[in-house]
Nucleic acid binder design. Structure first.
Lengths: 152, 152
DNA sequence: GGGAATGTTCAGTTTTGATTGAACGCAGAT
DNA sequence: ATCTGCGTTCAATCAAAACTGAACATTCCC
């Protein structure tokens, strides 16, 4: 017994809201992204407000948030004053790229702390280990990114 | 002109507080972990409260948090009623293992949504792509984990 | 038995962040 | 000129989370 598509859609949108909230995005941003991914077509600003039952102010703020991360893009059409949004071509790439950047930055910061210490300090070795850890994660995610790119 | 070790130490602890806060941990948990990593030796419960200038209640709560994640371990010594904490042997491994589990779970959840849809639905293809995305990330982090393990 | 030290718990406070909704500016349409 | 629809902004509200501090139970020491 397969559920109706609309039900799956609603569940997916709610799920994405929670999943992305756990990764630091505001919940509405997650739901917006879920909706856009599911529908796979541009949706208008007010459509989003209506469908998600949130204020226009929230759409405005969260759209800006997602736009700045490169996860979605804004479209404008001649003769239509509305803004339309859809998932960016390489939306997922962008997320990974940003993640890699964050981890690389952390690695470098930690290495900076390490190198401010004399080499005989045990702490220096430990901080270097931590820096290596973040570098390794960045490397792993980079590989994932390459794998995804060549598949699509 | 190298800063004194104590200064680097304080800065590192503060930095870790912020860095791990950005990844969902409470700030004090991040600072505790930073302190323990820097010092590389067991520190007592009250030492932590004193040094971080936070209440014992906070140490208790955050220590439990870090313990449950396997990031730190508690030591008890004969003839000493205090609890001592230090970073777990495979503290970083644990973090990666948990991350992999989360991403794998997300991938599977999303695939579940996809498979509830008829194959002619475009949404099904898109959700499968998202599931692949999370799977690829989990794979990348798994590789990072293996690389780290064999290095140490 | 007191008394001091230790970790936990929990109610209350503070802080932080998300969300709303009204006010606003702008651009087309009437 | 006025009106309507659109998106932004911002002050106020709300909710969730972290943190504190006092009360408590336990253990050890005198």
């Amino acid at each position: 017994m397969t559920p109706p598509i609309s039900r799956t859609r609603a569940d997916f949108i709610a799920y994405m809201g929670q999943a992305l909230e756990a990764q630091g995005l505001p919940p509405i941003a997650g739901r917006m992204l879920g909706l856009l991914i599911f529908d796979g077509a541009p949706r208008s600003f007010s459509d989003l407000a209506t469908e998600l039952e949130v204020s226009r102010g929230s759409i405005s703020a969260n759209a800006r948030h997602l736009l700045s991360r490169g996860a979605i893009v804004k479209q404008n059409r001649p003769g239509d004053r509305q803004d339309y949004f859809c998932v960016a071509e390489q939306s997922l790439d962008q997320i990974l790229i940003e993640l890699i950047a964050r981890m690389t930055a952390t690695s470098e910061s930690v290495r900076g702390f390490a190198e401010a210490l004399p080499s005989e300090e045990g702490a220096r070795r430990r901080l270097c280990g931590l820096a290596d850890f973040y570098a390794a994660m960045a490397g792993g995610v980079t590989q994932a990114l390459q794998r995804l790119r060549q598949r699509c």
